[in-house]
């Protein structure tokens, strides 16, 4: 681990100002991802600005009937929150399916959104990786890529985003509030993470020094009929092979509205808009669910080791929607 400076700011503007001066500085929250990466010198910040006690650690109802989640709320607290469990079960389920109890106690909402890929080549400084070292090449494209992307990847990078929480938030059309050197802004979560394109070293659209302060969940009545289904290689404590966050609004057997997002398939949480469109106004039945999933997955470009993700994604989309339509 490269030696670094550690700083605690007095308030949010202070933290933002401190980091703005440090082009190679980073915010530190729970540290469950950043510190691991620092130990391996995959990330070598000169300065850590500890924001753990700075941003809110509260979950509050907003005026419009939605929920505001402070960036410092831990994954455990968020998963256990009554409102989240009853109004947005998909989010609670996504959180408890991630990591382990100990990690969730430490991990924060802001840090979870910005955790970095688990690509094994990214995690090893001795192998080429465009994300870690731009221009060095992508070892995964012709290497072990079972865990990698089938949608929206580029020739430069085929990594996936590992967060479960972010997939649920994507289905819920959350907004991410940030405070940066140029003031505050509110970003639709779909615009937070980016496709790898030519710059896989950039995971998100955040500018240097922008601090996540909170995540807003807009009100969504049918989110109470939502669920998260994660497929992984063991029963607990593993990243998703593929996951789906789904919310379904059915009336008289017809799909009124639906939200679908996939994890483990792309560089960002993948909002399945094509499938959603295909379903609105259609009969809520297995054949239609399956057909909609197939439409979303038409563009899939599997790699050497991950063709299985296509049928897997199709099956769990179908199953999740079926269960949601039956449970209603």
């Amino acid at each position: 681990m490269k030696p670094y400076h550690y700083q605690r700011a007095r308030d949010i503007p202070g933290a933002v100002a401190a980091l703005a001066e440090q082009p190679n500085g980073k915010y530190l929250a729970g540290g469950t991802n950043l510190v691991d990466l620092m130990k391996l010198e995959i990330m070598t910040p000169d300065m850590l600005v500890d924001v753990r006690r700075l941003t809110s650690d509260r979950i509050e109802e907003t005026e419009d009937g939605g929920v505001r989640i402070g960036a410092a709320v831990t994954n455990s607290d968020l998963a256990a929150d009554r409102t989240i469990r009853s109004c947005y079960p998909v989010l609670s389920q996504a959180l408890v399916s991630g990591a382990s109890g100990q990690l969730r106690n430490l991990a924060t909402t802001g840090g979870n959104l910005l955790q970095r890929t688990r690509c094994v080549y990214f995690y090893d400084t001795t192998t080429p990786c465009n994300k870690r070292e731009p221009g060095s090449g992508c070892s995964a494209i012709d290497g072990h890529n079972k865990d990698h992307a089938i949608l929206g990847a580029s020739e430069r990078c085929v990594a996936t985003h590992p967060s479960d929480m972010a997939v649920a938030m994507t289905a819920l059309e959350a907004f991410v509030n940030v405070h940066g050197p140029d003031g505050e802004r509110r970003i639709p979560i779909e615009e937070l993470h980016r496709p790898p394109g030519d710059e896989p070293e950039r995971d998100t659209t955040l500018e240097h020094g922008e601090l996540i302060t909170a995540v807003d969940l807009p009100p969504l009545a049918f989110a109470s009929n939502s669920k998260y289904r994660k497929v992984r290689e063991r029963a607990s404590y593993a990243f998703a092979l593929v996951s789906v966050a789904a919310a379904l609004d059915v009336e008289d057997g017809t799909v009124r509205d639906v939200r679908l997002a996939l994890g483990g398939v792309a560089h960002k949480p993948w909002r399945a808009t094509k499938a959603e469109e295909a379903l609105r106004g259609e009969q809520a039945n297995e054949a239609n669910f399956r057909a909609a999933a197939d439409i979303e997955l038409e563009d899939a470009e599997p790699l050497r080791d991950n063709a299985f993700k296509v049928p897997l994604a199709r099956n769990i989309i179908t199953r999740a929607l079926l269960e949601l339509s039956e449970e209603r």
Partner: peptide
């Protein structure tokens, strides 16, 4: 990885052993 000659999943996040839940 035959190109590099090493075990690429060399940690417990990626080299899976059973958890209690298994």
């Amino acid at each position: 990885d035959p190109r590099f000659g090493h075990v690429v999943n060399h940690d417990f996040a990626e080299y899976h052993i059973p958890t209690n839940a298994d």
